[in-house]
Amino acid sequence: MKSVLVTGANRGLGLGMIKYLTKNDKADKIFATCRNVSEELKQISHDHKNLHILHLDVKDTSNYEDIANQISKTVGNEGLNLLINNAGVTTKFTKLNLVKAEQLLENLAVNTIAPIMLTKTLHPLLKQASEANSDKPMGAQRALIINMSSILGSIEANDQGGFYPYRCSKAALNAATKSMSIDLKKDKILVACVHPGWVRTDMGGKNAPLDVETSISGLFATIDKLGEEDSGKFLQYDGKVLPW
């Protein structure tokens, strides 16, 4: 890949993605967005000059055009090959009698609205990359959008209830992913949503069975294999197709 953008890159899965991309020389230009830059992310950018840190609170959609302009200045006519909408929030189990409207709104704003609106803003750059690499098949070397979802967004797999804010926001993101895959097919831009597994991060908690490295290496192995027939799918990090 020539270029990749990862949102929510200051910690957890997002930081894991940046580590993987820089360590394995997976992209010529890497963009990491975050609200607050962690010391670890700063150090990586110091060691890897192709990493560009961009300040972004994904809830502030008014800043999206500025982010697009900054990326455009760096990538030139090559556009953006890979957008990973990773930034996310979650709430605790949240039974029906305890759920709050502000929790629902917060999860929807970060987990659903932000990926849709950022994709809309960056669409011209993704289309530019697709056209610049028209000799390549649909996928990461051309133009690809990965929306980081969750098995908790699966309606069919929900056998525990609860998690109203998070479940609803991720189910909505899955629906958006399907629509994006249809709307962007004409531009040869592939779109998929991916469940990273239950990972030991600040969000996933210490009891999660999966470490960040395993999840991320599996994720990028899956990304490398994605083709036109995978657009619009809901996948696990290891490539397994998940129920809607």
Rank of each mutant, 00 (worst) to 15 (best):
L41W: 05
A176M: 03
I113H: 02
T33H: 12
G12Q: 07
A27I: 01
N107T: 06
G88R: 01
E229L: 11
N111W: 01
K127M: 13
Y237P: 01
T74Q: 13
R167F: 09
T94F: 11
R167A: 00
S231V: 05
W244I: 00
A171C: 09
E106Q: 13
K240A: 10
V212F: 13
L126I: 00
Y20S: 04
C193H: 04
H46K: 15
D211Y: 06
K170G: 04
E213W: 10
K186V: 04
P209C: 09
P243T: 03
M17L: 05
G153H: 07
T33W: 14
K127Q: 12
K26N: 07
P196K: 00
H52M: 01
T61G: 07
R11L: 09
D57R: 03
K59S: 14
K23T: 07
D159F: 13
A129H: 02
H123W: 11
K2N: 14
N81F: 09
G14K: 07
M17I: 06
D224I: 06
T177G: 10
A171M: 08
K92V: 12
D230H: 10
A171L: 12
N86F: 08
T214H: 13
V75G: 00
G161A: 06
E106R: 10
L51V: 03
Q43L: 13
E65P: 11
L152T: 03
L80P: 03
E40Q: 07
M148W: 03
F31M: 01
M1G: 10
G14W: 13
S149I: 04
S169P: 09
S154Q: 00
P196R: 01
G218S: 11
V241Q: 14
L190T: 03
H48D: 15
I67H: 01
V194W: 01
E102F: 14
A175C: 12
N174E: 15
K240P: 06
K206A: 15
K23S: 14
L104E: 15
H52W: 00
G218H: 08
P137H: 10
T7G: 03
K59L: 09
M17K: 02
D159H: 13
V4W: 10
K42Y: 13
N81H: 08
H123I: 03
L104P: 14
L21S: 04
M180R: 00
K188H: 15
L104I: 13
K29P: 05
V199D: 06
T121N: 04
G16S: 02
D202I: 05
G204R: 03
K120G: 00
S45C: 08
K136R: 12
S154F: 02
T201E: 14
M138D: 15
S130N: 09
Q103K: 10
E102H: 12
K23F: 12
Q43S: 15
T112F: 15
N97G: 12
S181C: 05
M17P: 10
S3E: 04
L190G: 08
N207D: 11
K95E: 14
M180P: 08
L13M: 06
E156S: 14
Q70K: 08
Y237F: 15
S134V: 12
N97P: 12
A68N: 01
V58E: 13
L82C: 08
L54F: 09
M117P: 05
A172D: 10
G227Y: 04
P115Y: 10
L54M: 03
L56K: 05
A132R: 11
Y237C: 04
